[in-house]
Nucleic acid binder design. Structure first.
Length: 787
RNA sequence: GCGCCAGUGGCGGAAUGGUAGACGCGCUGGUCUUAGGAACCAGUGGGCAACCGUGGGGGUUCGAGUCCCUCCUGGCGCACCA
């Protein structure tokens, strides 16, 4: 018996499930039910990603406490999910906002801290000066606070970070082993991690013993370096300009409307070229990122587009060091190195190798690998999240709590009105006496990013009652998740953070699992038609009727124009409520429609016709099994066997739309041949195979026919039975199909050719032609090649 | 701009390099009736035909929707990453 851990990304408890959830969970449920019928030990849990900002917003808007609001939402959504009759392990349920979840997360924080993977440093946040609060990136719209409309400021705050960059290399190479992940997601993660191999080079500052570090992927172009550019936040800027000038420059940078326009200020500093006996100027440039590499570059205008543009603007020299035509400048391709005494004639790869070893020898540079990936900032200046188990003393020092001092409970009675973080204002919670040092201390008032909550929930599901975060033995036995199903929007952050957690905790606890999710499946979103009035007001589809070919709004008789199909959203009024659909069409019709009209990883367009025909199929299957038994045709068994084989293959491939086609094909056949067989093993086989997709229907028919609530286990396919001994063989002349003939499998080529030559259609084609060659792909095709 | 993915009937979509369009929707004609959110039967890529057809053009192959090159269009992601 093998284990199958099937997991759908757990939802944020917003209060109501939407069609996207339904599709997500139906896909997972079909897998889970299939594997159960196969006899696998299936783990199929569900829980709630229950911390996060919307609860705080709701608190202000509806005057409810975030906890009450969240718990009520969980209750509502659980009711709705249960109406969907999903085969979930509800006894594994967790909610990240429950003490019993987040206290273990505090333990993990301590583990990470002790392993050197959690640390504090200053970082910039979005600060709303009116609300006196920190904003998430998505709350900043066009540089303004979403609620106050105030110009958002960048503020430097001391914050907690997880050292995900320690795992950058493994997070990158690990992708190669994830053969069951979509290429697209792997590419996105690869780009996000952004590994570049290059060199770090020291540039001596003229008239000083100090130097500038520069990262480059093109050390082979060092002879072409004619300037240096640094970011405005580089330390050389603060040491050579006063604060006022820096602020002015920042403002100038910010005022450049075309983001790509190059702009620079020459500093009163030069650097020595590391090889040549010359000095090159240093600029502050708006296009140099301070978060990448060393925040400084050397400009080689001949072989870099940005440097070329900059050099032209400020009339800096352009020195060609890679062979190319002048018209090709800036030339960024490969070629032989020129104008570079140490490197002339070498190809790029050899030149890089040679120059780097020269730098090493001279002590002015080294190989360097650089990543785009930054450490993960996990502090959120928010109430509704997992408290960080840290206390601060009056002298500014801090202490990470011991595990026996946990949990740090989130206080219930807080003031969410007004400005600032509610925890900061909660003096009686914040201020404590440190039991260890017996002096006054203050709790950390930041809470953890909710991505932390979702980075290990799949571990907690394995044993949600345990008094420690998880049991390492169970992790080894039951992870990785075999099939993880969810939206593509989590391609980077959630999935990368979870992979990091898996690896970090592996190294701390010593378990043998490297990756949390063996197979990842990203389902497509659900779209629906949109409608608008002539004033561009959105109209709900059910308000629209067609009258003599024009669309009008039922109530007002306004003429309506049809828009494109778009992702369901409240603002576009094209949402379909799962509750309504379940009430009108039932669970099974809803389930099967979720997988009918397009492959599960692509968009699904919601249509009335679609859901209706799903319902019709269910009636049709019911009618079929209600018919009087009839004599069984010879081929019925074979066709059913083929059905079992096909539908199984398609479930395993997530080709669920083809499963629906398999069901139609089977019932088309059975009805066409009037084969009604419902008291036999054959009908039990059919009921088993449709059970994962249509559980309610399958059970009720099973009950009617066999007075049993038990669905048979998944049948083992008899491949001999499926084999065809008669085949239809296509006959081509010169690669073009002319006709087909019915024949036995494993025919003799000579014999079959004789009968082929007798066919009129073939005779006509062969008239006045000479046969050059016969291509017989046994049992597949015969191709007659003529002159 | 760079990267990835995709382009097949009226529509959604099927096709290990081997009969393109499975299956569904829609549509056409018919049947039946307790007039239904039905059901059943027949048909449905284009063309009167020979034939032509998988975004355009080239190529590989006996044979290409499928592989290669190139261009066009659309979607997604990244976006000055040195």
């Amino acid at each position: 018996m093998s284990k199958k851990y099937i997991l759908e990304m757990f939802p944020y408890p917003s209060g109501n499930i939407h069609m996207g959830h339904v599709r997500n969970y139906v896909i997972g449920d079909i897998c889970a039910r299939y594997h159960k019928l196969k006899g696998d030990k299936v783990i199929h849990p569900m829980g709630w990603d229950a911390f996060g900002l919307p609860a705080e917003n709701a608190a202000i808007q509806f005057k409810t406490h975030p906890q009450d609001w969240t718990l009520q939402n969980i209750k509502n959504m659980k009711d709705q999910l249960q109406k969907l009759d999903l085969d979930l392990d509800w006894d594994r349920e967790i909610a990240t906002c429950n003490e019993d979840y987040y206290k273990h997360q505090q333990e993990l924080f301590i583990d990470l801290y002790n392993a050197g993977l959690a640390y504090k440093k200053d970082a910039l946040v979005n600060w709303d000066p009116i609300d006196q609060t920190v904003l998430a990136n998505e709350q900043v719209i066009d540089g303004k606070g979403w609620r106050t409309g105030a110009e958002v400021e960048k503020k430097n705050l001391s914050q907690w970070f997880f050292r995900i960059t320690d795992y950058a290399e493994e997070l990158l190479t690990g992708l190669d082993n994830l053969s069951l992940w979509p290429e697209k997601v792997k590419t996105m993660q690869k780009n996000w991690i952004g590994k570049s191999i290059g060199a770090e080079i020291k540039f001596e500052i003229s008239g000083s013993t100090d130097f500038l570090n520069i990262f480059t992927t093109r050390p082979d172009t060092i002879y072409g370096a004619t300037f240096i550019a640094v970011s405005i936040n580089h330390k050389i800027v603060s040491s050579s300009l006063d604060k006022k000038s820096i602020k002015d420059i920042k403002n100038t940078f910010a005022s450049i409307s075309n983001e790509k326009e190059k702009y620079g200020i020459k500093l009163n500093v030069n650097c020595k070229h590391p090889i040549l006996d010359k000095e090159i100027p240093v600029y502050i440039a708006n296009f140099v990122l301070d978060t990448y590499g060393e925040g400084a570059i050397f400009g080689c205008p001949a072989h870099d587009e940005r440097d070329f543009e900059f050099a032209n603007k400020y009339s800096l020299p352009i020195i060609k060091v890679v062979e190319c035509k002048d018209t090709e400048l800036p030339y960024t391709g490969d070629g032989k190195v020129i104008n570079s005494p140490l490197l002339n004639g070498l190809e790029k790869k050899d030149a890089i190798e040679k120059i780097v070893s020269y730098f090493k020898k001279e002590g002015i540079g080294n190989e360097k690998i650089n990543f785009k990936l930054r450490d993960w900032g996990v502090s959120r200046q928010r109430y509704w999240g997992c408290p960080i188990p840290v206390i601060y003393y009056e002298d500014g020092s801090y202490r990470v709590l011991d595990k026996n001092e946990l949990p740090v409970l989130l206080p219930y009675n807080v003031n969410l009105e007004g400005k600032g973080n509610a925890l900061l204002k909660k003096e009686d919670w914040r201020k404590i006496t440190c039991p260890k040092k017996n002096k006054i201390a203050f709790r950390e008032t930041d809470t953890l990013d909710t991505f932390v909550d979702s980075s290990w929930y799949y571990m907690r599901f394995l044993n949600n009652k345990l008094n420690i975060p998880f049991d390492s033995k169970q992790i080894d036995n039951l992870l990785p998740v075999d099939k993880y199903i969810g939206g593509i929007e989590h391609a980077i952050l959630h999935l990368l953070y979870s992979r990091f957690f898996m690896k970090a905790l592996r190294d701390i606890y010593g378990f043998n699992v490297d990756e949390p999710f063996k197979q990842l499946f990203t389902q497509g979103m659900i779209t629906h038609k949109t409608f608008k009035t002539s004033n561009n007001e959105w109209v709900m589809p059910k308000e629209v009727v067609s009258k003599n070919g024009t669309l009008i709004r039922l109530k007002t008789k306004e003429v309506i124009k049809e828009g494109p199909c778009e992702k369901m959203s409240k603002s576009k009024k094209n949402v379909i409520e799962p509750d309504e659909i379940l009430n009108s069409y039932g669970i099974d019709a809803t389930r099967i429609f979720m997988i009918s009209d397009s492959p599960p990883d692509r968009e699904l367009e919601w249509t009335e016709e679609g859901i209706q025909s799903s319902k019709n199929l269910i009636h049709r299957i019911e009618r079929y099994f209600a018919k009087e038994k009839s004599i069984i045709q010879k081929d019925v068994e074979k066709n059913i066997e083929k059905f079992v084989n096909d539908i199984e293959k398609n479930i395993l491939n997530f080709s669920l739309n083809k499963c629906v086609a398999d069901i139609y094909t089977l019932f088309n056949y059975l009805e066409k041949t009037k084969s009604y067989l419902h008291d036999s093993n054959l009908s039990k086989k059919i009921l088993t195979c449709i059970f994962p997709i249509l559980p309610k229907l399958s059970l009720s028919i099973n009950n009617n026919l066999f007075k049993s609530n038990n669905i048979d286990i998944w049948p083992k396919v008899n491949l001999d039975l499926i084999k065809d001994d008669k085949i239809i063989l296509p006959i081509q002349v010169k690669g073009k199909l002319v006709t087909t003939i019915d024949t036995n499998k494993d025919y003799l080529e000579e014999e079959i050719l004789k009968s082929i030559y007798k066919l009129d259609k073939i005779k006509k084609k062969l008239l006045d032609r000479k046969i050059i060659k016969i291509i017989n792909v046994q049992n597949k095709i015969i191709n007659i090649i003529t002159n």
